[in-house]
Amino acid sequence: MLTPTYYLVLSALVFSIGAVGVLVRRNPLVMFMCVELMLNAVNLTFIGLAWGLNDIGGQVSVFFVMVVAAAEVVVGLAIVVAIMRRRDGATADDLSVLRG
């Protein structure tokens, strides 16, 4: 019998994998992808609970998360493009201008 808990566990796994990915990978694009993974994990939670609690609100939230994710990717990738154009093959570690 499928329960929301399954969704939550799956979400937790994906979220953790995504988090580790953000921390470990150096390519900004891949880091972005890992962030997408985490967002999807959250979406899974929302969907699972919307189903489990029989509330459409969870789905609405997912909808908004997707919109925001899309916006984020658009801007984020634009930033990556701007950076990459100035320095080829830069990794996230190379960009530490904001160091204190």
């Binding site: 988090a19 953000v22 880091m31 960009l95």
Partner: peptide
């Protein structure tokens, strides 16, 4: 404390984590 502010995104992310 400024030294903690390494400017490395991944370090910050680790902090957040």
């Amino acid at each position: 404390v400024r030294r903690l502010q390494s400017g490395l995104v991944r370090s910050y992310a680790l902090g957040i984590t």
